[in-house]
């Protein structure tokens, strides 16, 4: 996937991954892809909730070696 911006949210706990995702999206253009890497297992449900409520689609999410990787498209 073509990633336009990457956010390293490793080691951060609720609600920081969400707040930093919001900030990262702020200066991106519509349609661009943000990759977020988090180690907070709570962020799996929270990122889905963030996507549902803000309308920025969560294109994909996966887990790899205890890290959670999200691809979010700016609406």
């Amino acid at each position: 996937m073509n990633v336009d911006k990457e956010l390293d949210a490793r080691g951060l706990n609720c609600p920081l991954p969400i707040l930093k995702t919001k900030k990262s999206l702020a200066d991106m253009a519509s349609g661009q892809i943000l990759k977020v890497v988090s180690t907070d297992c709570g962020s799996v449900k929270d990122m889905q909730a963030f996507a549902n409520q803000t309308g920025n689609p969560l294109v994909s999410q996966s887990e790899e070696n205890g890290e959670y990787i999200f691809f979010m498209q700016k609406k």
Partner: peptide
């Protein structure tokens, strides 16, 4: 502060 900042991020 957690709910406030997160709700603001959600619009």
């Amino acid at each position: 502060f957690i709910l406030g900042s997160t709700a603001a991020a959600l619009g």
